[in-house]
Design a protein around this nucleic acid. Structure first.
Lengths: 245, 245
DNA sequence: CGCCGTGTTGACTATTCTCAACCCAGGTGG
DNA sequence: CCACCTGGGTTGAGAATAGTCAACACGGCG
């Protein structure tokens, strides 16, 4: 069930069988989330680390008057709150989009894990760095890209991330967000998202129907998005490259 | 010279004299940067960790056609590239705004440091989490806030962060960014920044002249910005609170 | 059968951008 | 010592992107 996580970690470094087994065994319990259910609210304090196993989730922040911004999309294999137990209180909320399952790794268990398998510590740190890199790209996205570029970019990112954990089928992948939610992720109104998506369809770049995204021409979509996958750091095995150096 | 860093870390946990001494001694060398000089470029690979000791710096990303987005403002005590040696290549560039000095901590030295003082490892991880929290708030900023709110928010954040490391004098602090740069940080054009700053002045909330920012009424400015300092995680000593729990 | 959530469309508005000009202070070279 | 040049800040006018409001369509579910 933590397959996706292992697959992701292996983009950083090859894992031994013992390490893989340790990761697989890490979650003490698994929790089921209903669609729309909150896992965490702003201000909560956590003492475990949650890994998303199946489904989609959103990390979001709200303003006092209700405006909401989605600050990350969480897909299987992603951590919901890596190391967040070090913070006094969490600064975001986290909600499931679809029904979802999360693996709960208690803090002590994580400590044991990295003590027993030192390379996993680096792997987890790397996960945090990638998350941060994605956040930076999102700042660029909302700050500089036009609506069309923004939407195209979001679709490219999601597709690459899902492909990295084996959740694409050919040119297709799941995309269970409503247009309102897509708008909250891109800093656009729902109406404008609708028109923008239609434009991408009209250009023959994508189809989006029934919670499923089809990318007809990924290179073209990437060009339209000014997308370059480097920031996802999935290109492979940076740990190994380091060793050789 | 790493005073600011120590001060910041102490917002997470009280440090022993030995730990403070270790942090002070961490930088193997100090490098001087000219105003506008790049420390890092997209794609670079680093094998050390740089701490900003004096001056201001910017982390930024660019689009193929030249659009530029500043993704973080780095003030004394902040890391320029914490743990970035784990990445295959860096996904951002980093430039000094003013003349600046950075302390260079080689990777091995950092490893020794956290091995000798385990609590410092958590402190550094905490720094990374705070950085990430700031990035999330910036997504919210560009995604949802109006131009006026955005500018007010940026000023509030900077003031709080500088105050935390002892770099404010009463209601004043340095702010050496040009209006063009402020625009690149907020996703606004330089012209619009100008009009927005004037509006904040007209409201009597701030003065901004000669690279110096004065906040006449911080509570009012915070209200105008929908600012709440929780995300900066400076409220103190989360490590201690954890222990008591 | 009717309701609700989501997607779609049109008409109008408004925030923000672009372009272009101008000002001013500080630094440089003659 | 002064002329000039440059980088930043400021202003105005017009254009464009994106937002708002309101209505309607459609499908699934109670």
């Amino acid at each position: 069930m933590t397959q996706a996580l292992i697959r992701k970690l292996e983009a950083f470094t090859a894992l031994s069988e013992a390490e893989k087994a340790a990761v697989l065994a890490a979650p003490a319990t698994v929790r089921q989330l209903e669609a729309r259910e909150d896992l965490t609210r702003e201000g909560d304090h956590v003492n475990a680390v949650n890994v998303l196993l199946t489904g989609f989730a959103l990390r979001y922040k709200t303003l006092a008057d209700g405006r909401r911004q989605i600050v990350s999309i969480i897909v299987p294999g992603d951590f919901c709150d890596l190391r967040a137990y070090l913070l006094g209180g969490i600064d975001y909320s986290l909600a499931a989009v679809t029904t979802a399952t999360v693996g709960i790794i208690p803090r002590e268990r994580l400590d044991q894990l990295v003590a027993a398998h030192p390379r996993l510590r680096d792997a987890l740190t790397w996960c945090g760095l990638v998350e941060e890199a994605i956040a930076r790209e999102w700042i660029l996205n909302v700050g500089q890209r036009t609506a069309l570029e923004r939407a195209a970019h979001l679709f490219c990112e999601l597709f690459h991330r899902l492909r990295a954990v084996g959740l694409t089928r050919g040119k297709r992948c799941e995309l269970p967000l409503t247009q309102t939610e897509l708008g909250e992720a891109m800093g656009l109104s729902a109406v404008h998202v609708n028109r923008t998506v239609q434009e991408l369809r009209r250009l023959g770049l994508i189809s989006l129907e029934g919670r499923e995204l089809t990318i007809h021409d990924l290179p073209m979509l990437e060009a339209a998005a000014l997308f370059s996958p480097a920031y996802l750091h999935l290109a492979g095995r940076s740990a190994e490259r380091l060793q050789r150096a």
